[in-house]
Simulated assay, not measured.
Amino acid sequence: MFSPQGPSLRELATQALSSVERGYDLLAPKFDHTPFRTPDGILDATADALRPLGPFGPGLDVCCGTGAGARVLESLCQGRITGVDFSAGMLARARGAHPDAAWVRADVRALPFTEAFDLAVSFGALGHFLPAERPALFAGVYRALRPGGLFALPISSPQPVTSGLYWALLGFDLAMRARNAVWRPPFVMYYRTCGLRAVGDDLTASGFTVTMVPLTALGRRADGSPRCGLVLARKAPDAPMS
């Protein structure tokens, strides 16, 4: 599917009936040939929005997958780049593409870093976490950042109910909930559980100061609103040392 180099429907079905970790291990060799890989346009727009806020020292890609976010960090960070993910298969692909970066296998709900980074990014991963899991994720990112550090993540604006994409995403989430109700292990991936307001509230509760800038390079809707925004979560410069 998707391209001649992408996974077949059978391979996708096998992945969807696996755990999240095992599913991504299976998909890793062909992941970059699917629509699930963060598009270059989003990566480039994020880098352009962050560039005036830098330069940065060491950078962290949270839920790095095959390493697409490394191109953002490499263009912004003067220190070493680190990616963290729990899929060994995805990390192997990232390591092959960016051998100079550090690639760490870990559960991002318990990040093994303390005040090590100036910038953290994450692309397209929030749907893999239930709302109740986000506080642990964000607390770990907060702990991993140095005082004054920045956590940036692009989030698409809500789809209007008249949009075909609204109904497609709703249908996908309902299908995943039905799958997880009858099949184990669960595969957590929901598109409609990580809205801007909910994510902002969780980041604020974790200690961040949260703002958002529109990624206008990605276009606007008919009403003039941006299609995507970049959430900027800042750790206070005077935050006490962990």
Rank of each mutant, 00 (worst) to 15 (best):
P29S: 04
P39C: 05
G41A: 13
L43E: 09
D44W: 01
D44C: 04
T46S: 12
A47C: 04
D48R: 14
A49T: 01
A49R: 04
R51W: 01
G54R: 00
F56V: 08
F56Y: 13
P58Y: 11
G59Q: 00
V62N: 01
V62C: 10
C63M: 01
C63T: 02
G65W: 11
G65L: 04
G65C: 07
G65M: 07
G67D: 07
A68V: 02
G69N: 07
E74T: 11
C77S: 06
C77A: 01
Q78C: 11
T82C: 13
T82V: 15
T82S: 13
G83M: 05
V84E: 01
D85L: 01
A88Y: 05
M90E: 06
A97I: 08
A97L: 14
H98M: 00
W103A: 06
R105H: 01
D107C: 03
A110L: 15
A110H: 15
P112G: 00
T114A: 15
E115I: 03
E115Y: 03
E115R: 06
F117E: 10
D118Y: 13
L119E: 13
L119Q: 14
A120C: 12
V121G: 05
F123D: 13
L126V: 03
A132V: 15
A136D: 15
L137P: 12
F138L: 12
F138E: 12
V141S: 13
